[in-house]
Amino acid sequence: MNLYEELCKDYRFREGLHTCINCGTCTAICPAAEFYRYDPRRIVDIVQRKNEDEIEALLKSDTIWYCGECMSCSTRCPRTNTPGLVIMALRAMSIRHGFFTASEKGRQVYPLTKLLTGNILNYGYCVYPETFKWEDHQESGPVFKWHLEHLKDDFERIGANYQGTGPGVLRRIPQEDRDELKAIFDETGATDQINLVERCSKAKAEEMGMTLEEYGKYTFEYNSGNDFDK
């Protein structure tokens, strides 16, 4: 099976691309296109030309990682395409083939996977106070620094059930429910994807002369600025 045929198996790709007329409306509305050297029209055009070499180059590039998945393109396309869905299918394929470590933005899949799947499996939430470090989020301001320093007291004051039993805001999600999430991960391929991302990232880290921990911090923080060259 070639890359294009594999792409066609993804439901998001089948929903997201019918026939693109290359009008560029998606690029005009796209928040990422204003910020990055990025053109969703061109990505869709490459894919629908079915050129295997070009598709592989795309999967190894920074380009597919610029989209913010806001799906503004979905509303405006005159052909009811959704380039954002095409991007999601391309990203999934880049991960499956281990191509994501070839680009600066693709390598960020490792710290993202570690953070978000860790939060889901350990706590039952995608975002959780214990892993939201102020040092990594100084934009959250002095008020959030204060909040994180008085987490239990402040949550109690506002009426949250932080780490408590029963329903309520930020309750502790019981172990049996987190076990079910783990079983879902095992059954549906998420565990395999986590292991694949770690394996590929470890190999890339060694190639770059780093431990996996150093690589995680580096990919989380490093920005070469190449995304903005015109």
């Binding site: 799947t117 889901i120 995608c126 998420a190």
Partner: peptide
Amino acid sequence: TTCGGIAYHCDTIPQET
């Protein structure tokens, strides 16, 4: 629990998950 939406839109879990 979480619906997993943020992890999904950060491309860290498959669609079927």
